[in-house]
Design a protein around this nucleic acid. Structure first.
Length: 112
DNA sequence: CTAATGACGCTAC
DNA sequence: CGTAGCGCCATTA
């Protein structure tokens, strides 16, 4: 039996991802560190993203080194992710990673 | 209750 | 550069 995803539990994660500005990215670890309502690990953030609502800009969450980690399980979706990010102006390196040093959203920019 | 799993991340070698 | 192992913790079986 397929049970419905625990959107309620992951809500704090989705709230954060929704605040990531257009053209910027964050890592799974960043989300885990920033979201304090519940003590999530980077892995849990990954689980949450795998069942995220459609209105969440999931493409802005990448690995700590800029890799599109979804590629391992769903290569087609990784292509889609790259297209979405490039459409936002996010640059990639030659080996197919996000230039995270340049496009990472720093938490202190969050609200002042 | 135990064991396995996962869109991770870091260290060690 | 690449692989291996472990920590992390909610969810599943």
């Amino acid at each position: 039996m397929i049970q419905p995803p625990r959107y309620d539990l992951y809500q704090p994660i989705y709230d954060f991802v929704r605040r990531v500005p257009y053209g910027r990215v964050v890592s799974y670890g960043q989300v885990a560190d920033w979201v304090t309502e519940v003590r999530f690990t980077p892995r849990q953030v990954g689980v949450a993203m795998s069942v995220c609502p459609l209105d969440v800009p999931w493409q802005r969450v990448v690995g700590s080194d800029g890799r599109l980690l979804i590629a391992k399980r769903n290569p087609a979706m990784a292509v889609q992710q790259r297209q979405k990010l490039e459409a936002e102006g996010v640059g990639f390196t030659e080996d197919g990673r996000v230039d995270i040093e340049r496009y990472r959203w720093l938490i202190y920019e969050k609200e002042g």
